[in-house]
Design a protein around this nucleic acid. Sequence first.
DNA 1: TTAATTTATTTTGTATACAATATTTTTTCC
DNA 2: GGAAAAAATATTGTATACAAAATAAATTAA
Lengths: 251, 251
Amino acid sequence: MSRTAPTVAVNQGDAPLRKGPHNDHIYDEMFAAILEQRLAPGTKLSEDTLGEIFGVSRTVIRTVLQRLAHERIVQIHPNRGAFVSEPSPAEAQEVLQARRLIEEGIVREAIRKQVPSDIETLRRSVAAERESLKKGDHEAWVRLSGDFHLKLAAIARSQTLAAYVKELVSRTSLIIVQYQKGNLSHCSCDEHTEIIEAIEARDEEGAVARMMAHLKACEDQLNLRNDVVKADLFSIFAKPVKRARKSRSVI
Amino acid sequence: MSRTAPTVAVNQGDAPLRKGPHNDHIYDEMFAAILEQRLAPGTKLSEDTLGEIFGVSRTVIRTVLQRLAHERIVQIHPNRGAFVSEPSPAEAQEVLQARRLIEEGIVREAIRKQVPSDIETLRRSVAAERESLKKGDHEAWVRLSGDFHLKLAAIARSQTLAAYVKELVSRTSLIIVQYQKGNLSHCSCDEHTEIIEAIEARDEEGAVARMMAHLKACEDQLNLRNDVVKADLFSIFAKPVKRARKSRSVI
DNA sequence: TTAATTTATTTTGTATACAATATTTTTTCC
DNA sequence: GGAAAAAATATTGTATACAAAATAAATTAA
């Protein structure tokens, strides 16, 4: 109501406007926005607002939100609405653990199933990643560095595992936004390149070790001590005030 | 329209009729029906019909169907409707492969994270499974034999992996319906018991080996030769008819 | 009769309307 | 002024209405 944007903000021009997988387009758009960290964790995703932005009714927005919720990058609180997920430290560790497990399996399978053109595909992906890093295009870099893992899953020829990896990679992106320690994220290009080389050489243990090291490096740049992150203001600025705060406000 | 069942068939009596997680209840009901093999693969899931049965509008049925579709036990064909999934042989192999990978990790983690009461829980689960088998309650047996794997995932303390296992177990149920070779499904109780004992003894390699053998036994009772399954009538009853069937109808 | 075409019916996709629940603002009371 | 209560507003949950597509039935042509 109070928004100033026009009714159709995204769908202006190219799309047939009333045809095809409207659904998928909006999903892709929102998924990319979260993956590329343009939407911060905790952001409220109002159905009305999104409907205005994409020029559709709440019905289709709802479908998209439920899909994103099932992929755990959006959280729906009943009667309260949808929000970009804020993974807890415990959830973050779960995601990283699941990635180690699944991506080890994927690396082993990729070594068996690979054909030469697959290696080419991986190399191009890393090249694009390096390029985006050089240009300082953060959004492209996040997308491409995840893309490497997706391509690996595709080489393992398992749509099932690929779907899980897609989910885990996007959740990892949310985790990094929330818990990254330093300001500069470590360059994954070299690690990706090493993994490619080990896969090409069919060095199974070497490839697995490098993948594990890569995921470990990712985890090491996180601060998952939940006491620090979720401590409330009182425990941080704890001045010795006589009368303690009363039982926390009931809302 | 032509159905004879009354408008409210399931929701008669106990439920508050207008409150709470209506959604979840219908989801549970449909999930159980598919898992327990009361709904055959390929069954059409009409929105109107389901709405009548559960006494709700298509809106909420739609939500449930989309959720089931994301879990891959229902397939939605755009503009055609939702159907109970019919996993292809290739998909079946993917699912079994994913289970081997993920459940190996879960077994290892369960060994580390277990407390004595966890073993009790597992034992009770297998006892119930054995009981249902003795009573010849097929539906309960299917549910309980899957439940063992879910409980294992819970002991590994990973909701993420538990969700994946839940998905894979229910897909396995559909796969067994479609591709089981003999008529009698092999008794998993003993294998489950062996896994429990190895976990309790903290015999990691032994527990993993037993889990792998268990999943292998499951796969071995399947006939995944896609030539047999999907061959059309002509190739089976191939009489030497002069004029071959004309180029297939263009719709 | 068989096949193709047209018409009718059914079913899904989306928008909208209304009810139920949260949230915000205003009012009241101390 | 500040907290509590009440009213007003906004947002989600569900049902319904209508449009688009697919399926089924009926008609026509060969």
